[in-house]
Simulated scan of single mutants.
Amino acid sequence: MSIGESLQKARQNKYLTQKNVAERLYVTRQTISRWEQEKTMPNIYALKDLAKLYDVSIDSLIENSPHSLDKEEGNTMSKINWMALFGMIWFNIIFTLGAFIAVFGILVGAWITIGAFIAAPLLLAGEWILVVLMHLPWPANLDWYQVPLALVLCALGIGAIPLAKNLTSTLVKFCRQYIRYNLKAVYTKNQK
Rank of each mutant, 00 (worst) to 15 (best):
V152G: 04
L122W: 02
H135A: 00
A140Y: 10
I114R: 13
A140G: 14
I118C: 00
M134A: 09
A125H: 07
W128G: 10
K173M: 04
I112H: 14
G109L: 14
F174M: 02
S169E: 12
A140C: 09
Q146I: 00
I106G: 01
I161T: 06
I129L: 05
D143R: 15
A140S: 14
A164I: 00
L124G: 06
Y181N: 04
A119T: 13
I118F: 00
A140H: 13
K165L: 13
P137T: 07
A110D: 09
Y178S: 15
V147S: 08
W138T: 04
G109C: 10
R180H: 12
A119W: 07
C175Q: 15
T113I: 06
L156F: 10
G109N: 10
S169Q: 13
V147P: 04
L156R: 14
G126E: 14
T113K: 08
A155R: 10
L123Q: 15
V132G: 07
A120Q: 08
L149M: 05
L133S: 11
L151E: 07
I129W: 03
W128A: 04
R180E: 07
K165Q: 06
G126Q: 12
L153K: 07
L130F: 11
I161Q: 04
I129F: 12
H135W: 00
L130P: 03
K173W: 11
L156P: 08
V131F: 05
A150V: 01
S169T: 15
Y181K: 01
S169K: 14
I158L: 08
L149G: 02
V147Y: 05
V147E: 08
Y181V: 00
T170G: 12
V172L: 05
A155N: 08
V108G: 06
W138R: 12
A125E: 09
L171R: 01
L142E: 07
K173D: 05
M134H: 15
V132M: 05
E127Q: 13
C175H: 15
F174G: 02
G109Q: 07
A160I: 10
N166S: 13
L136I: 04
P139L: 08
L167G: 07
V147L: 09
E127S: 02
V152K: 04
V131E: 03
V108H: 10
P139Y: 12
W128H: 13
E127F: 05
T113G: 09
L163I: 09
V108T: 13
L151A: 12
A119G: 09
D143E: 12
R176C: 01
W138V: 11
R176Q: 05
N141T: 15
L130D: 05
I179R: 02
Q177G: 03
C154N: 11
A164N: 02
W138N: 05
I106F: 02
A164Q: 01
A116M: 11
L153G: 03
N141K: 06
L167K: 11
P137L: 01
R176H: 03
G126V: 12
P121L: 00
V131A: 05
W111L: 08
P139G: 14
L171V: 03
Y178R: 15
Y181A: 02
R180Y: 02
Y178N: 15
A120G: 05
L122I: 02
L142D: 08
S169F: 09
L151P: 10
L163R: 00
A119V: 06
Y181T: 06
E127K: 05
V132H: 06
L163K: 00
L142H: 13
N166H: 14
T168K: 13
F174R: 11
W128Q: 11
N166R: 15
W138Y: 10
V131R: 03
V152R: 12
N141H: 14
